[in-house]
Nucleic acid binder design. Structure first.
Length: 996
RNA sequence: GCUCAGAUGGUGGAACUGGUAGACACGCAGGACUUAAAAUCCUGUUCCCGUUAAAGGAGUGCGGGUUCGAUUCCCGCUCUGAGUACCA
């Protein structure tokens, strides 16, 4: 047993010299592919194109663990398969190499982030190469390299120079907008813009000075500056995107995040909200992921309504005449009994009457103190304050009090709601709490204990819509409001414009300088604007971003922007760069883009659902609007690979004695604990323990007696023990490598162990996140050293469906390794001499072959890689049983296996006498159904749906003959037991069911 | 709370349009080979009852339904995981 453990991290010692030598084979072919650029993709060929893309990684310092390559292996199998199917395949890889971890490291060590990044990339590359991917490395991109971020900056400039024309429903150039302003003023412009744009005539525009014109244009640009409330993370010294904040803490690092007002670059993604939503119906993505994007975009159809302010009181000199609300249930307007505005609403101060000022101030103070987290945890408590002011209902003139409450969010809609307690549960609770009226408005509504948001029934208490149904009522109310000029149908989106700036160093500099407080683009020929060197990677003493430290970094006309672009900038267009990675004139040539068009298959994690995948679609649509790319959607088909979780192992130690106890023994001990505690007789106990295979010693009972709880029969007790994570790399199939464990700490060497009867120490296990602190990280390098890349590739696929999340468990990898050795043996004799015959194949051999040809084809097309691995095993098992070593079979079999296990396939392919490397572009064997045709079928015969026996019959027989033959069968007669069947169902070639 | 995904042996999983549940692999048990082990090979392995062999019975999270027949379709529930968070 000890020797078994000695082998743990060593390559398999194979008994014969010429057995499957994966190490030599894999190194040889990886070298060959690199030297011969086997997987170089051409931008023009007569073959149809196919673009297989992986989400490129951020090269972290920890390197790859076994979960990372899962998606890469799947996409590589697919890419290799598509090559065999005659496609010109683009399958590139690169690095999303700007990002926070390298910068954090730089702050701690003073090491330049580019140095760290370079080193990490080298590690990634080495690990990726070992797995045998068919990437075209000539097209590698790195987002942090100047010849890449030059084009990220260039796209930023195009966004800056564009505005969104709603009439044309696309982005257009700012020059065109200026033209319009010069000839017609602001009239006739239907744009997505800031809210407070000016109205002016053509002359008015010309009368503006340059400053004023620029300030106005900034309100239209697709990337623009505005003061916005941002998620400020003081510990990281930066602003975070909404999707980087989790429950009020930063996703990376878990530092507190607060709301802060800052001048920020933003991207007008909201201009594309509708197109982003509609585009989802045209792409083949997982439904949950599309749903996430739909929720994120958050379209709601409703109406905006203006409630005129009742100026009879102190409000006579107010500038505004109304409060505007957004509602999705404008039909319930006659049920409005109060208005609620957000505590941050701009009108709060003005609306507060002197008598209510104390209440309102107290409430605002209280709200501000509540952290984001409290506000979320505390959705049940009703709170609010009355401003003292009133508005009137635009349709019936009713006087309506205006309240403030934090259940209304300043950032959504207009920051104000019309409260209809009969139809909305939050309004209902609020009304109950503050004793406000609840007006029923639908005849079938039941509002005794809670709000009833039904749309069924007809309206009551609702003036001119009384008696109508939901649809007519809504239309009637909207028409009326439009007549009055106090409301209109409106679509509202939850999605906000994306913040596009970070107060950090390690990112793309924004190609902008400031003059007179306004931003101007640098000249295009000065791109890239290089990231300057700085002395420390920290904010300046005056609180400016790190770039404020750069000396002499200044545009002749003014100061450069000091913030850098966010992490998603470089990843929002990278798939185009792969098409033409070395172009220094354009981000990619027109020809390359027109040839490759879009990504046919994109594989990556679902964690990018609302970040990368939304921003990428946005930039893609913009690039299409300005005529630079050809497809509306960048990723035609997308697959989420499931997350690989860790599988942790634990060892147990009894608190009293310090002995380590094997898990199964511990379980027995625990199960037996209560019984043992009943007896104080050492002899009885010793017997009981012996029955468990445990050594008994007086005093062990005390282990339970700690924390004991008295019961009526005696004592129910708890055994005191500790569980500790143990490194999964010294555990195999939950059996601990005791020798290694003892060596890991001197204390463990001298400890005592309670083992299983066979001398093993069994660990328990649990599924957790894969992380160093849980000692459950499995490194692909170790597995490759032991079993080879082909085994790793196939095992990762064998683990289960690609899209399913699952814990990593190395148990079972041997089965795949054995399979590859068995496969190798098909081509070799008992002494491992290559031995393939040219005899004609038998029917059975051809059947095995064509079964797998068909199966692999079907499986790959539906991304079911795990089932093909099983099928390969079945095929090899069958051919082994048939003792088949015929070229006619094996040659085709090697091709079908090549996408999964490319190294062994290359080796055997050349041994078969084919030119080296040619398997990558060999033709996938043609499936011939004729070889699968059977003339007999063993019909399962069920009685009332329960399978009892099989009867073999010719497949040419028709239903009536089958029925007769089955009923005549002796076995069937026995089950019938003289009874006459009520009914016999015969499905030809499938089943016979007899109803009795 | 809402939305989505999922639940099958000791374990990972298979069963593609409703038609033999548990393929394939791990683990485990027994055996062969060996001085012994490793490697390799063979046999068995859903559970219960029972056995010389058999023959039964139950069974895909739980409770119903549709059907000749349900892991698969429908209704209700439980649990697990993910996303989202007062969205008017």
């Amino acid at each position: 047993m000890l020797k078994q453990f000695l082998l743990f991290s060593q390559p398999y010692t194979l008994n014969k010299q010429m057995d499957y030598q994966f190490k030599d084979i894999e190194q040889k072919w990886q070298q060959f592919w690199a030297d011969n650029k086997t997987f170089k993709a051409e931008n023009t060929t007569s073959k149809p194109k196919y673009y297989v893309l992986d989400m490129f990684p951020y090269p972290s310092g920890a390197g790859l663990h076994v979960g990372h390559p899962l998606g890469y292996i799947a996409s590589d199998i697919f890419a290799r398969y598509k090559r065999l199917k005659g496609f010109n395949v683009l399958h590139p890889m690169g690095y999303d190499s700007f990002g926070l971890p390298a910068e954090q490291y730089a702050i701690q060590t003073g090491q330049h982030p580019s140095v760290t990044t370079e080193a990490n990339i080298a590690t990634y590359r080495r690990q990726l190469d070992q797995i045998g991917f068919s990437f075209d490395w000539d097209r590698e991109v790195r987002t942090s390299s100047p010849d890449y971020y030059k084009w990220t900056q260039w796209i930023f400039m195009q966004l800056f120079n564009s505005w969104y024309n709603k009439d044309a429903d696309k982005a257009e150039s700012i020059a065109k907008l200026v033209e319009h302003f010069e000839s017609k003023g602001s009239a006739g412009i239907n744009a997505v813009s800031d809210e407070e744009v000016l109205s002016f005539t053509a002359d008015g525009w010309k009368a503006f000075n340059l400053q004023e014109q620029q300030a106005e244009l900034l309100k239209y640009r697709l990337t623009y500056l505005r003061e916005s409330t941002v998620n400020w993370c003081a510990a990281l010294g930066t602003v975070l995107a909404n999707d980087e904040v989790k429950d009020g803490f930063s996703e990376r690092g878990g530092y507190p995040v607060e709301q802060k007002k800052m001048m920020q670059w933003s991207m007008r993604i909201t201009a594309y909200a509708q197109r982003l939503l509609e585009g989802l119906d045209t792409i083949d993505w997982p439904e949950p992921l599309k749903e996430m994007q739909r929720n994120w975009i958050g379209k709601s159809v409703g109406a905006s309504v203006r409630f005129p302010l009742d100026k009879t009181t102190h409000l006579s000199q107010l500038t505004t005449n109304y409060i505007e609300v957004f509602t999705t249930r404008v039909d319930t307007i006659f049920g409005v009994s109060f208005l609620v505005i957000a505590p941050e609403h701009e009108l709060v101060a003005e609306l507060t009457t002197p008598g209510q000022k104390a209440d309102i101030d107290a409430y605002i103070t209280q709200t501000k103190k509540k952290s984001e987290l409290d506000r979320m945890a505390d959705t049940k408590t009703v709170s609010g304050a009355f401003t003292g002011s009133y508005v009137t209902n635009p349709l019936n003139g009713a006087q309506i009090p205006v309240w403030i409450a934090d259940y209304v969010l300043a950032g959504y809609g207009t920051g104000a709601v019309m409260a209809v307690p009969s139809g909305d549960q939050r309004d209902y609770l609020f009304a109950k709490h503050f004793n406000l009226p609840i007006i029923p408005i639908i005849d079938i509504q039941n509002i005794e204990t809670e709000a009833d948001p039904t749309k069924e029934g007809t309206y009551i208490n609702s003036d001119f819509i009384n008696g109508l149904g939901y649809k007519e009522a809504t239309a009637a109310v909207v028409t009326k409001l439009e007549e009055l000029g106090l409301g209109k149908a409106k679509v509202n989106f939850r999605m906000r414009d994306a913040i596009f700036g970070r107060q950090r160093y390690w990112g793309e500099p924004v190609p902008v300088y400031f003059k007179g407080g306004l931003p101007y683009l640098i000249e295009e020929e000065h791109l890239p604007l290089l990231l300057p060197e700085i002395d420390k990677y920290l904010p300046t003493e005056s609180g400016e971003p790190p770039l404020g430290r750069a000396t002499g970094w200044k545009h002749p006309e003014g100061e450069y922007e000091l913030s850098t672009m966010p992490g998603w900038a470089g990843s929002s267009w990278y798939w185009y760069r792969y098409m033409d990675a070395h172009n220094d004139k354009e981000f990619a040539s027109r020809e390359a883009i027109e040839y490759w068009k879009d990504v046919d298959l994109y594989i990556g994690g679902s964690e990018h659902a609302t970040g990368h995948l939304l921003y990428s679609r946005f930039w893609n649509k913009f690039l299409k609007d300005i005529g630079k790319v050809v497809e509306e959607e960048p990723f035609k088909k997308l697959i989420n690979q499931g997350m690989i979780q860790g599988r942790s192992n634990f060892v147990f130690r009894l608190v009293k004695t310090g002995k380590f106890i094997s898990y199964n023994k511990l379980k027995k001990l625990l199960a037996y604990g209560g019984l043992l505690a009943d007896s104080n007789n050492d002899q009885d106990n010793a017997k009981a323990f012996a029955g468990l295979g445990l050594e008994y010693y007086p005093g062990i009972i005390d282990l339970w007696k700690e924390n004991s709880t008295p019961t009526d029969t005696g004592v129910k007790t708890t055994l005191q023990y500790q569980s500790t994570h143990v490194d999964v790399n010294i555990v195999e199939n939950d059996t601990l490598d005791l020798a290694k464990f003892k060596k890991s700490r001197p204390e463990y060497a001298s400890a005592e162990y309670i083992l299983e009867d066979d001398g093993k120490y069994i660990c328990s296990w649990e599924v957790e996140k894969m992380s160093k602190s849980k000692f459950n990280v499995v490194n692909p390098d170790d597995l490759i050293a032991r079993y080879g890349a082909d085994t790793l590739r196939m095992y990762e696929m064998f683990l289960g469906p690609l899209e399913q999340s699952k814990p990593w468990n190395t148990n079972g990898i041997e089965g795949v390794f054995k399979f590859l050795r068995k496969f190798w043996k098909l081509f070799h004799d008992a002494d491992f001499n290559f031995n393939v015959s040219n005899e004609a194949p038998t029917k059975a051999e051809l059947k095995s072959l064509h079964k797998i040809i068909q199966k692999v084809e079907q499986d790959i097309e539906r991304f079911s890689f795990n089932t093909s691995v099983s099928s390969f095993m079945i095929a090899v098992n069958e051919l082994t049983d048939l003792k088949c070593n015929k070229r006619a079979i094996l040659q085709d079999l090697v091709i079908t296996l090549a996408p999964y296990a490319p190294h062994i396939s290359e080796e055997l392919w050349t041994l078969l006498g084919n030119p080296a490397g040619s398997i990558s572009t060999a033709a996938y064997p043609k499936f011939n159904p004729a070889y699968l045709v059977e003339d007999e079928f063993s019909y399962p015969v069920s009685f009332n749906g329960k399978m009892k026996t099989n009867v073999s019959l010719s497949l040419t027989m028709e239903a009536a003959d089958i029925e007769a033959a089955i009923l005549a069968n002796a076995d069937v007669q026995k089950y019938l037991d003289g009874k006459t069947p009520k009914k016999v169902i015969v499905v030809k070639g499938r089943i016979v069911n007899i109803v009795i």
